[in-house]
Measured scan of single mutants.
Amino acid sequence: CHSECLGNCSQPDDPTKCVACRNFYLDGRCVETCPPPYYHFQDWRCVNFSFCQDLHHKCKNSRRQGCHQYVIHNNKCIPECPSGYTMNSSNLLCTPCLGPCPKVCHLLEGEKTIDSVTSAQELRGCTVINGSLIINIRGGNNLAAELEANLGLIEEISGYLKIRRSYALVSLSFFRKLRLIRGETLEIGNYSFYALDNQNLRQLWDWSKHNLTITQGKLFFHYNPKLCLSEIHKMEEVSGTKGRQERNDIALKTNGDQASCENELLKFSYIRTSFDKILLRWEPYWPPDFRDLLGFMLFYKEAPYQNVTEFDGQDACGSNSWTVVDIDPPLRSNDPKSQNHPGWLMRGLKPWTQYAIFVKTLVTFSDERRTYGAKSDIIYVQTDATNPSVPLDPISVSNSSSQIILKWKPPSDPNGNITHYLVFWERQAEDSELFELDYCLKGLKLPSRTWSPPFESEDSQKHNQSEYEDSAGECCSCPKTDSQILKELEESSFRKTFEDYLHNVVFVPRKT
C-alpha cells in the first residue's frame, strides 16, 4: 500500500485506493498535508475557505447554543480562536489581540433580562453583547459592586439597553466600559436606550469621564423622579442622539420631579488639616426662599486615587461607600458681607490618608415646582503625618564578641513616609551569675543571650482551647457569634421535631 494509506488498500502504491488515510483526505486521495488554498479540518480532512465560511455563517444565523462559528488559524479551520487571539470578521482569520481579548457573548432569543446578581454573573467577562440587555433589578445585597464585577467589562451592545423598574439602582456607572450601543435591534418605538419607572436612579454616568455613542435609535425617559433633566440632556449631547427624540420621548413632568437638581456650584473657602482632623468651610448658599434650606450634607471617604465619582458603590438597598454628615444651616444675616460661612470639623480620621470630599445642599421643593440647590466639586484632601507606631517583631542576635545583629519589621501604621529608623542602645553591667558559677561542674549549661522565638506554653494553649472559665478566673470563653447562636437554635429545633416524629412513629394507638 501507499505510504499515506492506513489499515489496508485495494490497489498497491495508489493513494486513492486506501481504506483510511494516515494524515489527511483531499478529493478522494490521501495526502501528507493540505496544500494551499485548503485548510486542515478536524485533523483528517482538507477543506477550502468557502466550506469553513459556510459553517461560520450557519452557526451565526441559527443562534443555536453550542454550535461553533468556525475560524481560520495556522492553516486550520477550527471552532474558535485560541487564547490571546480574536477573529477578523472580513476573512475569519485569528489575529493577536492588542491588550485583553474581546469576548463576544451571543444571547438566546436576542435579549437577556438581568433581574438578579445570579443572572448578571452569566455575563461575567463579556466585552461584546450580541443582542439586547434588559435591566430589571428590584433589590439585593452589595448590588453596585456585584454588577460592576460582572457587567463592568461590557464595551458594546449590538441591540438596545433597557432599564425598567430597577428600584435598587442609583447610577449606571457599573457599566464602566460601555462605549457603544449599535441599535441594530430596537425596542418598540425605535428606541435604543429605554429608561422607565426607576424610582431611585439619580445618575446615568459621570459624563466628564465617560463617552457613549448610540449609532441608531432614540432615547426614552419616563417616570424617573430623581433623575434630573440636565442629566438626560447631557446624554443626548454626548451620545449623538440630540435631535432624534420626539416631543413625548422625554417626559418633562415625570423626570426629576422629586430630585434636588443642583444648578449652582458650592466653593470651599477654608481648608485646614491635622493628622486626624480636617476643618472645612464653604461659601454660604440661600435659595430664593431661605426657609427652603434644610441644611447641608457632607460626604467623605478614603480615596487612594483621584478618580472618585459621587455615586460609586451606591445602591438604593443601603450600600453606600460614603460617610454622610448632616449639618444645620448657619444663622442668616441681613448683611451679605457678614454672612457666616458654614463648615464642619471632621474628626477621627487616619493620618497621612487622602480623602475625597464634597458637600451639597438639602432643600425642600418650592411652590413653583422649581428645584434649587448647590453642590461642590469633589475635592481631595490629605491629612498630615504623625509619629508612626512601633516597629514590629524586633530580633537581636550576637554573632561574635563585638557585634549584635538587630532586625525588625516595619510598623503596622507608618502614618507617613518613613525615611529612617533611630536605634538606641545602652551598655549593661555583666551578670554576677557568670562569676559565681563553678565551671568545672559536669552538665553545666552556660547562660545564653542568643534570641529564641517566643512560644506559647501548654497552660496558655489549654486556656485558649477551654470553653469555660478556669477556677483562677484568668480566662473566659469568647462570646458566641450570631451565626453560632442561630445554628444552635436550628439544631435544637431539629432535635425537638425529630423526637416528636419518633414518638408518633414508635407509639401507635392500640386498636379498641
Rank of each mutant, 00 (worst) to 15 (best):
I395H: 12
L204C: 11
K226P: 02
D326M: 05
T213P: 02
P304A: 15
T353M: 02
Y223S: 10
G139K: 10
D206T: 05
G131R: 00
T127E: 00
T127K: 10
V170M: 04
E283N: 12
A120P: 03
G152A: 01
F299D: 00
L298A: 01
L265V: 13
W322D: 01
E109V: 01
S173N: 12
R182S: 09
G110N: 04
K209P: 04
D315W: 03
K177T: 13
S269A: 09
L204F: 10
K407A: 00
Q339L: 12
H106G: 05
G125Y: 05
F175N: 00
D289S: 06
R247E: 03
N211L: 10
I404S: 03
L108N: 15
D257A: 15
I250V: 13
E246S: 06
D315P: 06
L293W: 06
K301M: 13
W352H: 13
L143H: 03
K277A: 12
L349A: 05
R370P: 11
R179P: 00
H341L: 08
T254F: 06
V238T: 05
R176D: 03
N136T: 03
E246C: 04
W286Y: 05
S321T: 13
G217R: 02
N248Q: 03
Q314R: 15
E122L: 14
F311N: 14
N200Q: 10
N142I: 00
K234F: 08
G240P: 03
E237T: 11
L266M: 08
K407V: 13
D335A: 12
R291L: 07
N190L: 08
L293D: 03
P288W: 10
R176Y: 09
K277F: 11
L298M: 13
Q354K: 04
I135M: 06
C228G: 02
S396K: 10
S116I: 10
G313K: 15
W322H: 04
I327S: 02
A316S: 09
D367P: 06
G373L: 03
C261M: 01
L279V: 13
S208A: 15
V170E: 10
Q314E: 14
P287W: 02
Y305W: 12
I214Y: 02
T113C: 15
R176V: 12
